[in-house]
């Protein structure tokens, strides 16, 4: 007898945590730009994007806590889990790099999120659906922002072209994981609350290729070595350092109220 049968409830919890972890960790990364942007308008835009991402993660964690039903809250998942318990994509935890890297990563993540949320917006679960529809509006803005910058940097100066090309080359081996699926996805799709990511994989690839082509960039090799394992707790060493910063104060005074 299997002791770890994946119930619908557990699958939902894991699914929410995967979505939330991506957004918390990426939001934490993007927030590092605050006060250090290349131009004042980008300080505002990047802070706004970080706010959205962390706000989305907080809503998803709160719902995860509700589904889990163990008396936890949103902060519990963000502050009291260790590296190997986080299931965010490695793509989201990579250092912010230069502005080009931040943009390349964000373009790939937000375009994927857009397609994914377009499916999730019809989820059966009312509370989940409401959240997704609200967040989708903001994801559209993130996508427009990052796509505009891919075009500007790709077709800007020689230096910007080279930098954004390098960023895409560097980040490419982390994209295959966007389409990772397992029994969590199967159960969620079967229950009407999951997105079948493989159903839009070709459309997403075409969208990415068209944007890179318009930006005069070379499309990196889709068949190169791709990393895997994030959804089951495999991470780069960067995640531990992010959590060190994120969790330190809360964990130093676990009895204190900080809400």
């Amino acid at each position: 007898m299997s002791t770890d049968t994946l119930t619908t409830q557990k699958a939902f919890l894991k699914y929410l945590l995967r979505l939330a972890d991506d957004r918390l960790i990426l939001g934490q990364r993007v927030s590092e730009w605050c006060g250090h942007g290349p131009v004042l308008e980008e300080d505002l835009a990047l802070a706004n994007i970080a706010l959205d991402l962390i706000g989305h993660s907080s809503a998803l964690y709160a719902y995860a806590a509700q589904i889990e039903d163990k008396g936890h809250d949103d902060d519990y998942f963000a502050y009291f889990r260790d590296d190997y318990e986080f299931t965010n994509l490695q793509l989201c935890e990579l250092p912010k790099g230069d502005f080009g890297f931040t943009i390349a990563r964000h373009f790939l993540f937000s375009s994927f999120s857009y397609y994914q949320y377009e499916l999730l917006k019809n989820a059966k679960d009312e509370q989940f659906r409401g959240m997704i529809n609200k967040h989708l509006k903001e994801i559209k803005y993130h996508l427009r922002h990052s796509r505009d910058w891919v075009l500007r940097l790709g077709d800007g100066t020689e230096e910007s072209h080279e930098r954004i090309q390098n960023a895409f080359d560097e980040v490419w081996m982390y994209v295959d994981e966007l389409f990772y699926t397992d029994d969590v996805d199967e159960i969620m799709i079967a229950s009407g609350n999951g997105a079948d990511v493989n159903s839009f994989k070709d459309d997403w690839k075409k969208f990415v290729e068209d944007t890179l082509t318009e930006a005069t960039l070379t499309i990196p090799d889709w068949d190169q070595y791709m990393i895997s394992g994030s959804r089951n707790g495999m991470h780069t060493e960067h995640l531990g350092l992010i959590l060190t910063q994120l969790q330190f104060l809360r964990r130093s005074h676990p009895e204190a109220d900080w809400k």
Partner: peptide, 26 residues
């Protein structure tokens, strides 16, 4: 302190505040 804010709510409040300062500059 954005990276170390002790709750998600406080992190959002602080980020929004610092973003406002950029807006004031503008």
């Amino acid at each position: 302190w954005i990276g170390r804010a002790p709750s998600l709510k406080r992190k959002l409040v602080l980020l929004a505040k610092v973003q406002d300062e950029a807006g004031h500059g503008l």
